[in-house]
Nucleic acid binder design. Structure first.
Lengths: 336, 336
DNA sequence: CTGAAAGCGCTAACAT
DNA sequence: ATGTTAGCGCTTTCAG
């Protein structure tokens, strides 16, 4: 009963394999009677088409590779849900890989996906210098970048306005009277990390506020790194900034723990804002003022884009910017 | 330059395709010189073996299907990380699907995976009555159940001691003096949901405590459902139990929000315990007393098991119980 | 050590 | 409307 093929069905139904294939695909005329015979045979033999054989012929695997830096982060999980909700309707499955912000791993993963002959790849790259993407395109594997852009690549992109949002968020802090603002940067090999930093710097510069060296921290988008760096500043150097700008949710969480451990109250002692909402925000006091991205929508857009792209590989690459919101909560103190 | 095949390499290197295949697989003797010639050809043509063709011959796809109910839950994400850390070393990729606790969806997903000819499936089923698993086994697709058992199936299982842990957790509440204990049940179509409930009931019964009807809530492992049900109890019926047992982390979170919104302090007004730690536990006051499962380890074990199972499909199914810990924090008030 | 050739399960052009 | 047949890219006997 195991591994029933089109051939078995053909024999059982006493037709040719071509006929079986035709009813299977319903793409060529088959008479009612034979069709029923074949269908019956398929049923009784419990036939399931071998999609590998199909793929070999058609060069279509119905597989989409999704490469993300951090699958514990709900931001990226929402993206997956968005993608899946769109592509699963067209019978696509997702091969999920994560890279932990490690570019070498990313390269390995991409290579593996290319050998698996996935129909397309959705990528949040850990390095703006990813040149391998061009190779993928050449190999005829379309790539859609999500969240993170890369240099010099002529591919589809779905991203937030990281620069603009970071600018907005910083401006808000400044307008609330803050000057001693510390930034916990993300991964500066990554477009979002760079742009958020640039947005921050631009806002500071436009308001003639100097950024102190001590206040530029590198958290690499990691909870632990952020925790360490903020702790160094506050506990070791004993410098408490007036406000902290965390460039993502994970780092905001690490930062909050340092503050909590040192009995520094938000916003009374330190103000804190974050790029992307933290986990269980609703249960945590105070709620953090933040930039809230629409991850689910980003995922959906990416899904749509990838489907279009699979159908038409020649169309001009598009860049879609998904708008984020500034959500004002009670984590910033008004000064003066 | 696109789609270079073994044939192209053979021509370029002036050998037969068989020889190319041999150096590719390094499984038959090939002389140094020809080997180098071929390798050089592969390199210069940028040849990549087509894994689909390989799969067709070998019946091995190097794909493992992972079917989980909820990918936003960090518990399940840790499981994925555990699986991946083990199987990716052997060049396996994961096809991730989620079911949202919807059994129909699960069936669809499983069917799709079977047609994709995945080498194995790791499943956390949303229904103890999943009979389709037996079909998969018959089709020669090994299945490892993770976290959730099903009836009548002779397959490998990695699970926690849900009954025992729930018993322990309930006993703790009782020993702290609680009697009016409310349980927010999980999905009672699922083994974990059932066993946690049974463990709860057994502990109550062993201590001769009656369970009030009002105190049996059904949260279906859903944040929203739990929120609603607890709200009904506390706001509509105006009944405040002495303690609440949430059968998973998501439902504990929903419960906490109800309490917070109604200014009920934990543990002063209500005690709360949860099966599995909530997200950002470290930042939330008070930390919840809970059963902490070792999700990462469960994932790793599942990965190992699946690899063994792929190699030896005839071996007797194993059941591995991964031990969970009772972590006592400050969310339970001592009464009397 | 190397080459020729069959075949994995399916699709599609070509016959009839 | 249906059957025959040539591949898709690779692995693996079987000869030599």
């Amino acid at each position: 009963m195991e591994n029933v093929t089109i051939k078995d069905v053909a024999k059982y139904a006493q037709v040719s394999i071509a006929t079986v294939s035709r009813v299977l695909n319903d793409n060529y005329p088959v008479s009612k009677e034979t069709k029923e015979k074949v269908l019956k045979a398929m049923n009784e033999l419990n036939f399931k088409p071998n999609s590998i054989a199909r793929s070999l012929k058609s060069n279509i695997t119905h597989l989409i590779g999704v490469v993300l830096p951090d699958i514990s982060n709900s931001f990226f999980m929402e993206i997956i849900k968005g993608i899946d909700s769109v592509v699963s309707k067209e019978e696509y499955s997702l091969i999920l890989s994560y890279t932990d912000e490690n570019f070498e791993r990313e390269l390995n993963v991409l290579k593996r996906l290319s050998q698996k002959r996935v129909d397309a790849i959705i990528l949040a790259s850990s390095n703006t210098d990813n040149k391998y993407v061009d190779d993928l395109i050449k190999e005829n594997i379309p790539v859609v970048l999500i969240d993170r852009k890369i240099k010099n690549s002529n591919v589809d992109v779905i991203a937030s306005d990281d620069f603009g949002s970071a600018y907005t968020l910083t401006k808000y802090l400044i307008e609330m009277g803050h000057k001693d603002i510390c930034i916990v940067n993300g991964n500066l090999n990554v477009s979002t990390g760079i742009e958020r930093y640039e947005g921050f710097k631009a806002a500071m510069m436009d308001h003639n506020i100097e950024i102190k060296d001590d206040f530029i921290l590198n958290g690499y988008y990691s909870w632990e790194k952020a925790y360490e760096e903020v702790k160094k500043l506050i506990v070791d150097k004993k410098i408490v900034p007036s406000a902290i700008f965390a460039a993502n949710n994970r780092m905001a969480e690490g930062t909050m723990l340092v503050l909590k451990e040192n009995h520094l109250k938000i916003p009374d002692d330190v103000s804190l804002v974050t790029f992307e909402e933290i986990e269980n925000q609703k249960l945590i006091e105070p709620k953090l003022t933040c930039i809230k991205q629409n991850a689910l929508l980003m995922g959906k857009k990416a899904g749509q884009m990838i489907l279009e792209r699979i159908k038409d590989k020649e169309a001009n690459p598009k860049e879609i910017v998904v708008v984020s919101d500034l959500v004002i909560n009670g984590s910033v103190k008004k000064i003066n």
